[in-house]
């Protein structure tokens, strides 16, 4: 369903969509059940001529059932959500699969700077490629990213990857992604970061391995200069 609303283009986008779908279904079912029961009772026990209202303490067993049974089932639903959420959180945020390449993402008011390795595939060497607002990556490749900020708090968000991570000044936060579809997708800042926040957008270009190798060769300073 998530793919129908917004394309998925990373290995974990489906896991996040499924978690949101699970939460939506479990919470949605209860929402309609409770609201349905609420309005049904309002209608059933509406004011009638010659009938007085009763004061109910709710202490009797047959009345407490109406609270206790749904309460227990809701708690069980919570446990299901928590188990699935922890599983997804662990896979996306806590575990770090081996990287095939590592990049640095730098947030600043109001642009994204990307530093990625040149032909040597090693970050922080002379042939690193720096770009502003455009990140070029290879499809079906696992990337680690080191996310930093030059000034204020930003948030590196790639909606089609279902990736969203705060960038905190003074910290380097490591995360990962693995693109699964070629194409050009939006990068945005998802944290209010000043007057130009609204125009702090970029693009991620997911290329085939051959296209990406050609791009690296053409843009690597060692090769081009």
């Amino acid at each position: 369903m998530g793919d129908f609303i917004l394309q998925r283009a990373s290995s974990y986008a489906g896991d996040i969509d499924n978690l949101i779908l699970l939460i939506t279904v479990l919470v949605g079912v209860w929402f309609f059940l409770v609201e349905g029961m609420f309005f049904y009772l309002l209608w059933k026990f509406r004011a009638k001529d010659g009938q007085k209202g009763q004061y109910i303490t709710g202490k009797e067993k047959h009345l407490k059932r109406w609270i206790n049974i749904p309460h227990g089932i809701v708690l069980a639903c919570d446990v299901v959500i928590i188990v699935f959420a922890i599983n997804v959180w662990y896979n996306v945020k806590q575990s770090l699969p081996d990287a095939e390449s590592t990049i640095r993402v730098i947030g600043q008011q109001w642009a994204w700077i990307f530093q990625q390795p040149g032909a040597d595939n090693t970050l922080d060497t002379d042939d690193d490629i720096f770009t502003t607002d455009d990140l070029y990556v290879s499809n079906e490749t696992t990337y680690h990213f080191h996310l930093v900020s030059r000034d204020v708090i930003h948030d590196f968000s790639v909606p089609v990857f279902r990736l969203k991570q705060d960038a905190i000044p003074g910290r380097s936060i490591t995360g990962w992604f693995r693109p699964t579809q070629t194409g050009t997708f939006d990068v945005q800042c998802a944290e209010m970061c000043g007057i130009g926040h609204g125009v702090m957008s970029g693009r991620i270009h997911v290329q085939t391995a051959a296209e990406h190798s050609a791009w690296v060769a053409a843009n690597s300073p060692a090769a081009g200069e």
Binding site: W110, A111, T132, G196, V199
Partner: peptide, 18 residues
């Protein structure tokens, strides 16, 4: 304002787009 090393220029570039 497009160079990754022009921190201040990048800021101004964003504002110019307004």
């Amino acid at each position: 304002g497009s160079s990754p090393f022009d921190t201040v220029g990048i800021r101004m570039k964003s504002m110019s787009l307004a």
